[in-house]
Amino acid sequence: MNDRSLSGTPAASSAVVANHGDDVSGAAALDRVGALNVFVRSAETRSFTEAGRQMGISASAVGKAISRLEKRLGVRLFHRSTRSVTLTPEGAQFLKRCLRIIEEIEAAETELALAHSTPRGRLRVSLPLVGMLLMPVLGAFMRTYPEIVLDLEFSDRLVDVIDEGFDVAMRTGEAGDSQLITRSLGSYIHIIVGSPAYLAGHGTPEKPEDLVGHACLQHRFPSTGKLRAWPLERNGETLNIELPTTAVVSNIEPLISMAEQGLGLACVPDFTVREQLKRGSLVRVLQDLPVPRAVFRALWPSGRHLSPRIRAFVDFMGAHLFPETNPGP
Rank of each mutant, 00 (worst) to 15 (best):
L265I: 06
K278F: 06
S58P: 08
H305M: 12
R97I: 01
C267W: 02
G225W: 09
G262E: 01
C98A: 15
R53W: 08
F271W: 13
P222K: 09
G131I: 07
S178E: 12
R293P: 04
F154V: 07
F48K: 00
G194H: 02
S126R: 01
A175C: 06
R143D: 15
M132E: 14
V149C: 00
H219N: 03
D3Q: 14
T272M: 12
N235F: 13
F296S: 02
D315P: 13
L77C: 04
G91T: 09
A140L: 03
I310P: 07
A28I: 13
A266S: 10
L114Y: 15
S187L: 06
T88Q: 11
S307C: 06
P269W: 03
I191A: 03
G225A: 12
G63Y: 09
V314H: 05
D288C: 00
A229H: 14
S117Q: 15
T325G: 05
F296A: 07
T118A: 14
I102D: 13
R220L: 06
P10D: 13
R234C: 02
S195M: 11
L77R: 12
F316L: 03
G213M: 06
A175D: 04
L133P: 06
E164N: 00
H202A: 12
S81H: 13
A28Y: 09
E70S: 00
Y198M: 10
L263S: 10
D22Y: 04
R143I: 10
T325A: 05
G165R: 00
L211E: 14
